[in-house]
Computed example of a mutant assay.
Amino acid sequence: MLVRIIGGHGGVSPGFRATSYLIDGKLLLDAGSVASGIQIEEQSNIDHILISHAHLDHISDLAFLADNCFGMKGKPFEIYANTPVKNAIMTHLLNDVIWPDFTTLPTKENPTLRIHDVKPLMQLVLGDYRIMPIPVNHSTGALGFIIERKNASVVFTQDTGPTDEIWKYAHEVKNLKAIFTEVSFPNSMEKVATASQHHTPATMKEEIKKMPKDVPIFLGHLKPNFQSQLFKEIAEIGDERITILGSGDTSYVF
């Protein structure tokens, strides 16, 4: 399983891209920077898109992905989101006001984007991938995902504050190769992190105790304006398993 971090930050600025992880060039996890982060030909090769939740930094590039690849694929991008997220996308983004409704273009029968309802805790099978969507502690019905292909499994929590259910499932997973999760704010902003359902390095230190042991941990969603401080405070956690996703367009093989 090849995981490419197109964008892994919790904000947008030159050198900092919002969340989009591309798996094996075909399965996209969140659409915060896919249109701005990879070439159009690579965009058109994507088959399936998982959306963790409806915040703008995780859905914004659905608009530009559809525009870039309109008429190129001959088949829709198949998008998977739970009902609150699907409703938010259709109401606030693809509403023919903010952006055209690409779920009906060029036709309803053969649209550019097709959105499927995902039920939490019901396994989704997409080709070689088995995907378990699990509720996490964040807004708009946020989901984390455990993705398995052949002999490798990876946990993605995307945006979440302290949570529990996904770690219970993670302990039952065979061949768990990596955990991707987040630290957004420095320790001095714990009240903000708690209110917005995100992590600080201090809360992540406690969260790690819930995770399976001896599995590499990748921390993303750093807010660009606090990145230097977050690097320092994450290092103080003192866990050698941690890799910080501090730059975009990096890849990992599991």
Rank of each mutant, 00 (worst) to 15 (best):
G141K: 04
V118Y: 01
G8P: 03
T157C: 05
S184H: 13
F102Q: 05
L28M: 05
F231Y: 11
G15L: 00
G248C: 15
L124K: 11
P224F: 00
L113N: 02
V253Y: 09
G248E: 14
G11M: 00
M211R: 02
F226N: 03
L93F: 14
I244F: 05
A35F: 04
P100T: 00
A142T: 14
N87E: 11
S33H: 08
H171C: 05
I23T: 04
I146G: 08
T104M: 12
T160W: 08
N68I: 13
S247L: 12
N225D: 08
K223W: 01
L222Y: 01
M189A: 12
L126G: 03
D57S: 04
L93K: 11
N45R: 15
F102D: 02
L105G: 12
Y252W: 15
P76V: 07
H58G: 08
D67K: 08
S247C: 13
E41C: 07
G15C: 00
H53T: 09
N175R: 10
D249N: 14
L143P: 09
L222R: 01
H55F: 14
E165N: 08
S60W: 13
P106L: 01
V136Y: 04
V125Q: 14
G141H: 08
G141L: 08
G238C: 11
S20Y: 00
V34E: 08
L50E: 01
D101A: 10
E148I: 11
D96H: 02
Y252N: 08
I51F: 06
P14Q: 09
S139F: 15
G248Q: 14
P186L: 12
P201D: 07
R114W: 13
P14E: 03
T91D: 15
I51P: 02
C69W: 01
E240H: 07
A54G: 15
L121H: 13
V12P: 00
P84N: 04
T19C: 12
